[in-house]
């Protein structure tokens, strides 16, 4: 996703993260915790990026091992695979967190 315009993906992910942070704030507001929207969203965004990047890397290495065992051709595939998995993970992460913090 947004493979040719990566910066666009980061901007969209950050904007979605801002909205997510608003819901996280209301979720925790009962216990007196109140995150600053800008700082809080930046922290959550950073954590999501790191977590998804590490997860994507692990998946990439697993895929490489798998393709070596079954002798599959994976030339010039790694970067695109890493980016796709990374973006999918970020969307999934945002979706699961959103569902969790807005649950009834």
């Amino acid at each position: 996703m947004f493979y040719n315009k990566k910066y666009l993906f980061f901007i969209i992910a950050y904007l979605m993260n801002l909205i997510l942070c608003f819901f996280v704030n209301t979720y925790f507001s009962f216990s007196g915790i109140n995150l600053n929207l800008i700082v809080g969203s930046a922290i959550i965004y950073g954590l999501i990026l790191i977590f998804c990047f590490v997860a994507a890397r692990i998946l990439l290495y697993s895929f490489k091992v798998f393709s070596r065992i079954f002798k599959l051709k994976t030339k010039n595939f790694a970067t695109k695979f890493l980016w796709t998995v990374f973006t999918v993970f970020i969307y999934l992460f945002i979706f699961i967190t959103f569902i969790k913090v807005t649950e009834y």
């Binding site: 996703m1 947004f2 493979y3 040719n4 315009k5 666009l8 993906f9």
Partner: peptide, 12 residues
């Protein structure tokens, strides 16, 4: 013009 971009927008 960019197919990748087009599908990315649709998915998003």
């Amino acid at each position: 013009p960019d197919k990748n971009l087009k599908y990315s927008f649709i998915i998003t």
